[in-house]
Design a protein around this nucleic acid. Structure first.
Lengths: 198, 198
DNA sequence: TCAATAACAGACAGCTTGTTCATTAACGCA
DNA sequence: TGCGTTAATGAACAAGCTGTCTGTTATTGA
């Protein structure tokens, strides 16, 4: 009952073609024919798999999120301690492996809808994690968990983007994590080089 | 030598129609005719002003940035002190006044290009501000100014979006500024409700 | 008032979309 | 290996959108 090899091959070809072409010309500049041509697939075949360009992109993004989730699962499970930065590190590695796809998603290609999928999922998980942590340690957050999660994800997205768009890696993943963690935990004054945090 | 009243009227009508329609249906779903119809302008006239949809959107975004710059000028000039949050407050107010436009830009409509314009300008200014401040106070930043700026702008964009998308204002601008400033300066541990920042 | 010019409606070829159909080829399974 | 099932193909279609050009009309600023 495993998926037919032909469908797997075409879907994979279409997905790869999409990523390549979006990177080259931008999502809105592409026609379905551009994609099928690059993928070496008949145009009619495209429509037997996806409603339109956006559906293909949405599917590709959803798969990316699945992959990320699977990679993150172990490091999230063992994070009862505090802000270790392990999930962030895993995310950076994922972005290294799927660099092109990360680039087009983070750029907001597709009217920002894939990016929204991405941030919404991350923010929801993060917020839940925050709430769970607060509960476990019996502390009351001084800032709404939802807002806190949005801000944290906003930071991460900014860093991911900077990281994925740089031609030569500006810093090893471990160092980026350290910097961001220092910044997040110790505050901006510290990061700017000042000593007194008030 | 002032601009012809007709062109002013037409451009304004097109800009307003664009914002309305993007909010309703999304940028990629719009045809030029949709826009001209809503603006009550002949289709041919559109092309005598703009090359295409994207050019119109780019123009609207550039104007928004102009307006923001003009509003920010006074508070940036007087910020020799430190992180006062005055620019952020002014930005939130600007977002309140131009809510619809902010929403579509921050969503990443137009394949994220307007949003990129927005973040690039903000990040460039912020980075320069960071560098100037470090120079004035003769301190050495512990984190690269460029990265620091990207992270800070990433936060701001996340908050702006949350703020602009909420149906009923979730909090007054002043309070949002206070929260974000506390978070930025005192760090995540503090925000989460913990006492010891290490 | 008048010259300049913006706005207009209409028409144009060329391209993209999404669908349908009959035909061919690849697949999984027994 | 052979067989029934199903995916892929290429061609054709109407409908819609794009970008450009036309001659004409209406508004504008001086």
């Amino acid at each position: 009952m495993a998926e037919d090899r032909r469908t797997r091959r075409t879907r994979r070809a279409l997905a790869d073609a999409l990523v390549e072409l979006v990177l080259e010309r931008g999502f809105s500049a592409l026609s379905v024919e551009d994609i099928t041509e690059r993928a070496d697939v008949a145009r009619a075949t495209f429509y037997s798999h996806f409603k339109d360009k956006d559906a293909l992109f949405a599917r590709v993004t959803a798969d990316l999120l699945d992959g990320l989730g699977r990679r993150l699962a172990p490091s999230v499970a063992g994070s009862a301690v505090g802000f270790t930065g392990k999930p962030l590190l895993e995310m950076l590695r994922h972005a290294r492996d799927e660099r092109d796809l990360y680039r087009i998603v983070l750029r907001g290609e597709g009217d920002g809808k894939p990016l929204q999928m991405f941030t919404d999922v991350c923010a929801a998980n993060t917020a839940q994690e925050f709430r769970a942590r607060a509960e476990r340690n019996d502390v009351k957050p001084r800032i709404d968990a939802e807002l806190l999660a949005r801000v944290w994800v906003g930071e991460q997205v900014a860093v991911l983007r900077w990281w994925a768009e740089s031609e030569t890696p500006p810093a090893p993943a471990e160092e980026v994590v350290r910097m961001l963690l220092d910044l997040a935990l110790r505050g901006r004054y510290w990061a700017s080089g000042f000593d007194a945090p008030e």
